[in-house]
Design a protein around this nucleic acid. Sequence first.
DNA 1: ATCATAGTTGAACAATCGTTCAACTATTCA
DNA 2: TGAATAGTTGAACGATTGTTCAACTATGAT
Lengths: 122, 122
Amino acid sequence: MAPEFDLDLCDCEVIHEDVVNKVRGALLPGEDYSDLAQLMKNFADGTRVRILHALEMHEMCVCDLAALLGLTKSAVSHQLKNLRLARLVKNRREGQVVYYSLADDHVKLIIDMGLEHLQEEK
Amino acid sequence: MAPEFDLDLCDCEVIHEDVVNKVRGALLPGEDYSDLAQLMKNFADGTRVRILHALEMHEMCVCDLAALLGLTKSAVSHQLKNLRLARLVKNRREGQVVYYSLADDHVKLIIDMGLEHLQEEK
DNA sequence: ATCATAGTTGAACAATCGTTCAACTATTCA
DNA sequence: TGAATAGTTGAACGATTGTTCAACTATGAT
């Protein structure tokens, strides 16, 4: 039986065929990793993490966030749109004011896990 | 007392001053958010997440990963360098072969948290 | 209706990033 | 010593991305 690997691109031989076969069977569909990476991009920007960490403490409107973080309304709004599309934040309108808050507690858990990892580096 | 906000950039008034002041006092130093974002960038790319998820199952060398994921040795090596600098993976050399494995279990926890979030979207 | 303010949006620009390519180092074997 | 293979590295290219700017919508007040 022919090997199932993409040897076209890989300019080397498989060294541990048993391990590779085993792992290959346990990998998720490629689309899952794209989705995961797309989700994680939301935590991969200083502005967005600040917004998320701020919303962890209290719901806020766009103006509050802009003033708090020293950004323009536009910049905040653009980032909130990304976060909303990833279902990381939700919003409710009250007159002219749109209040944003975290959509669920995965946000806090992921951020805390990251901060923990950073603190372990003496 | 003058307001402590960066009103230069923000083209609006603070709407909820009490909330903003409270949150402002609880925010981390700006550098912490940069570091966190820098760390999270490692999970924000399809190739790197596939590498990390594969290493979750078994340690592997560069050739194994390249063959498994259909990438060149160079591409894998570049990404492993990023992951190593972020202390997400560690390596050990055995002759010509360099074996990579996860540095700690934060990687698995963060990835699982992300996958959980994605599955909640029916 | 008119105005002021909160918020959104699309285009554009600069900066960042992933891959490729070619050249390089390191280790083993003959 | 010299060939073969595993792995690393820096430059360069194309693609992605965050912010700005200007124009826009939405709501409330006069």
